[in-house]
Computed example of a mutant assay.
Amino acid sequence: MAPPSVGEEWRLKFGSNEAAKGWGELCAEAPGNARRCFEVLRADPLSYADRDRQHRLRGRLATATVGGRTYPQWEYEVTAGGRVRYLVDEPRRTVHLVYASTRHPKDTE
């Protein structure tokens, strides 16, 4: 997915094959927006600077599990319908992309 992180950058990893496939589709459909998402997640995946585009999920979606560990779950709006969901492992400065799609996830409707 990404070159190795350098300095203060966060490490990005795919949490599933489906997320990797969806990321590829997002990059093909909206390369500029996907690149901005990548840069934001690398720099500050916990930012509240643009709450309309990037925010922590709430309720039953507030956390999710990858690799047997539970983490806070966030979402980044790449396009009007396209979303990336990710889990934040702060101690390891790692972002696990667990959902990426050109379509809005149905579980928030």
Rank of each mutant, 00 (worst) to 15 (best):
W23R: 00
K106V: 10
V40N: 02
P45I: 12
K106E: 14
E8R: 11
G67C: 00
E8N: 05
R103F: 15
A49C: 06
F14E: 08
S47C: 09
D89R: 11
V40S: 02
E29G: 03
H55V: 01
W23T: 10
A62S: 15
P31M: 04
Q73E: 11
N17G: 15
T102K: 05
L57M: 13
D44W: 10
C27Y: 08
K106Y: 12
E39A: 08
T70G: 01
A30L: 07
V95G: 03
G81T: 11
D89E: 06
Y48R: 14
H96W: 13
L26F: 04
E39L: 06
A2C: 11
L57T: 01
W74G: 05
A20S: 15
T63M: 06
P105R: 14
L57A: 07
P72R: 11
A62E: 04
D52K: 14
L41M: 15
R83L: 03
R42M: 10
D44C: 08
D44L: 00
T63P: 05
D89L: 07
C27Q: 15
R93L: 00
S101A: 05
R69D: 04
G82M: 02
T63D: 09
A20E: 15
H96S: 00
A43R: 07
L41C: 11
G32R: 12
T102V: 14
